[in-house]
Structure formats: structure tokens, C-alpha cells
Amino acid sequence: MTIETGSPAPDFTITTDTGDILTLAGFHGQKLVLYFYPKAGTQGCTLEAHDFNRLKPNFDAADTRVIGISPDADKALAKFRSKEGLSFALAGDETHELLEAYGVWAEKSMYGKKYMGVERTTVLIDRGGRIARIWRKVKVAGHAEEVLAAAQAL
């Protein structure tokens, strides 16, 4: 499935690493950043998490919640959050249902070998539940700042 700017965000219900259940409807009236990353604890994913965490007070001031989503198990995410001192929600989608709904579960290739995995993507959802902006094939450096600027302008 492919999502597009201006379309309604795909609905979701997902459990965080702390056991909280999050739904798209639960964020109605707030802006929401869903950033999809391949694997907790890897270098790029850790750098991206630190960037979003460092800017969390600015996202809060912009009335924007941030959720990191990967295919990891909740236990691995809880360990990652604790080790890295992250102060925003992490959610694991082991079934890939949400990852597929947002079009980020994709065929990838490394050293000539094809496999399925998360295409690093960030989605900004407006207060009414519509997709305001999509960043595909994200490069980590400076990305969180760019997302923050878009959230502040929304």
C-alpha cells in the first residue's frame, strides 16, 4: 500500500514497549510524527532516536507527539529505550500490519541479497488525522530537525 500527502492516515492500534495501547483516534487534535526505522540498537537507528529525543521538548511545544515504530519485539524496544534514555514512545509491529499499511515494509537489497525490511520513513500527521508530509528513504543526519520545522509550520 502507498500513502500520499493529503490522504487520511491509515488507522492503527499498537502497543508500546511500556504496554500502553495507542490508536490514531487517540491523537485527534494533536499532530503526530510516526518515524519508522529498521532495528533498535543499530547505529543509524540509535542516532535517529537520539535526535528525536534531543528535540522532544521542541516537539512538545509544537503540540506534536513522536512515536518510533520498528518490527522489533516490545522487550527489545524496552531495553533500547532504557539503555538510550529515550523519553518518547516506541512501538513494535512484529506482524508488519502497521508497517504495511503505511507502505514502509518493502523489499530491500544488500550485497545482492533481497529481503523484506523497513524502509526508513517518517510521516507527519495533522490534527485532523490527515497525512501532512512524508519523508521516504530518510538519511538520519539533520532529519529530526527537518521534521520539527515541518511540525512547527503546520
Rank of each mutant, 00 (worst) to 15 (best):
V33D: 00
V33K: 05
L34I: 03
L34D: 05
F36E: 02
Y37G: 04
Y37W: 12
Y37M: 05
Y37N: 04
Y37V: 10
P38C: 12
K39G: 03
A40W: 11
G41M: 14
T42L: 08
T42S: 11
T42C: 03
Q43Y: 14
G44M: 13
G44D: 11
G44S: 09
G44H: 07
G44C: 12
C45K: 11
C45R: 03
T46N: 09
T46W: 01
L47W: 00
E48K: 02
E48R: 00
A49S: 14
D51C: 06
F52T: 02
F52R: 05
N53I: 05
N53G: 02
R54P: 08
R54V: 10
L55F: 01
K56G: 04
K56R: 15
N58E: 15
N58V: 00
N58C: 07
N58M: 13
F59Y: 09
D60V: 04
A61Y: 08
A61H: 13
A62S: 09
D63P: 08
D63S: 04
T64Q: 00
R65L: 07
R65W: 14
V66Q: 07
I67M: 03
I67E: 04
I67F: 00
G68E: 05
G68H: 01
G68P: 07
I69T: 01
S70G: 09
S70R: 13
P71C: 07
D72A: 09
D72R: 13
D72T: 09
A73Y: 15
A73E: 13
D74K: 10
K75F: 13
A76C: 15
A76W: 06
L77E: 08
A78S: 15
K79G: 07
F80H: 09
R81V: 15
R81P: 02
R81G: 02
R81S: 12
S82R: 01
S82M: 02
S82Y: 06
E84P: 04
E84M: 08
L86I: 15
L86T: 05
S87D: 13
F88I: 00
F88Q: 00
A89H: 12
A89Y: 09
L90A: 05
L90I: 05
L90T: 07
A91D: 03
A91H: 06
G92D: 06
G92M: 07
G92E: 11
D93E: 04
E94P: 15
T95D: 12
T95Y: 06
H96W: 06
H96F: 08
H96G: 01
L99S: 12
L99W: 06
L99P: 06
E100I: 14
E100C: 08
E100Q: 12
E100V: 08
A101I: 02
A101D: 13
V104F: 03
E107Q: 11
E107K: 14
K108W: 11
M110F: 12
M110T: 08
M110K: 10
M110W: 09
M110R: 10
G112Y: 04
K113E: 11
K113C: 05
K114N: 10
Y115H: 15
Y115G: 05
Y115A: 13
G117F: 09
G117E: 05
V118I: 10
R120P: 06
T121Q: 11
T121A: 14
T121I: 11
